[in-house]
């Protein structure tokens, strides 16, 4: 009987059904449909932004076996670089849809470019000497994180920096008694576009095939004639750029940022990578959505449990599936 239920659930989507199940349970517990829709949109939007930050870390973890605690530095730098560009172009933000869009695009591109450059530097100078040595990786990347936070403090100062938003992303759409923040919908859309882009990259290109193979068995990829180090650099730069993009989006969501932003997000990002399954983009998305929804539902239903909810979620999932929900390696 249990096997039949399990097989049927597997055919319907298996672990992919978890967000739906979570939303359904929350719908019953919350009671008010309008609040449920608002919380669900907020959860999905938070999940998508966390996905942006976590997807690169998952690939780096899975492919390179590198514990990069400095990943959150890219999140922080992305946020501050984007905030600086938006502040510099603040007159564009109120100058009509075209100019505001251009300002936003430039801010996001600047964050991505910074992430790519910082990723190249980080991989070649800091990570490469400590491949295959987890203890030194933890120490050196933690050190790099502290240095990065101090650089942000030195450049941007310790007082919170406000992040201007383009006018077309301000406000909310009201449908009946349901309110949905436009910025959150935008974040959801951008996250979905990045997810589709990553899936196309991983599943429809030779580079993607190499990354997926490398996540499973780096040695064999080399034995097939491919220089894995070049792949490492590319993946690390991609992961850093995605983290910076996630940081930039999070900055616009928070609208007030401090140098501790990356460090604060890092715990959530690591939880998402662990429960999603190392090296798996689908797993990271699934984990991010579940974390986003849980944080918002619990924050509404039992605010005192909100801080612990992610940890409880991680423990529950790891007890059920020790390798995460959708690990890349079977």
């Amino acid at each position: 009987m249990m096997n039949r239920v399990s097989e049927t659930l597997g055919r319907l989507g298996g672990v992919n059904l978890l967000p739906l199940a979570l939303a359904a349970v929350a719908f019953v517990l919350i009671g008010a449909p309008s609040s449920w829709v608002t919380l669900t949109v907020a959860g999905l939007s938070m999940g998508m932004m966390v996905f942006l930050m976590a997807s690169g870390l998952s690939l780096v973890f899975g492919l390179m076996d590198v514990l990069n605690f400095g990943h959150s530095a890219f999140v922080s730098f992305g946020a501050f670089v984007a905030a600086t560009v938006l502040a510099a172009l603040s007159t564009w933000l109120d100058g009509g849809w075209m100019l505001a869009s251009a300002a936003l695009a430039l801010a996001l591109l600047a964050a991505i470019a910074f992430g790519l450059a910082a990723g190249l530097f980080f991989e070649t100078v800091i990570i490469r000497p400590v491949y295959r040595d987890h203890l030194r990786q933890i120490l050196i990347t933690m050190g790099a994180l502290i240095v990065s936070e101090q650089i942000i403090l030195a450049v941007w100062g310790g007082t919170p920096v406000s992040v201007p938003r383009p006018s077309f992303l301000e406000g909310a759409w009201i449908i009946g008694d349901v309110s949905m923040e436009i910025y959150r919908l935008f974040a959801m859309g951008l996250g979905a576009v990045v997810f589709v882009g990553l899936m196309v990259l991983l599943n429809r290109t030779r580079i993607g095939l190499l990354i997926r193979a490398g996540v499973e068995n780096r040695e064999m990829v080399e034995a097939l004639g491919f220089k894995i180090n070049r792949l490492f650099i590319g993946v690390f730069m991609l992961g850093s750029a995605l983290a910076a993009l996630g940081g930039a989006m999070w900055a616009g969501y928070e609208t007030l940022i401090t140098p501790a932003l990356g460090g604060e997000m890092m715990i959530v990002v690591f939880i998402v990578v662990i429960i999603g399954g190392l090296g798996s983009i689908e797993g990271t998305l699934l984990g991010a959505i579940i974390v986003g929804l849980t944080a918002n539902y619990i924050g509404y239903l039992a605010p005192k449990l909100a801080l612990a909810s992610n940890m409880i979620l991680m423990m529950a999932i790891l007890m059920w599936r020790p390798s995460g929900l959708r690990p890349a390696v079977k």
Binding site: L209, L210, R212, E216, N217, V221, A328
Partner: peptide, 12 residues
């Protein structure tokens, strides 16, 4: 590579 199909293992 267990996560790749037979075709993908060979094309790689």
């Amino acid at each position: 590579f267990g996560g790749l199909t037979v075709e993908e293992n060979l094309v790689l």
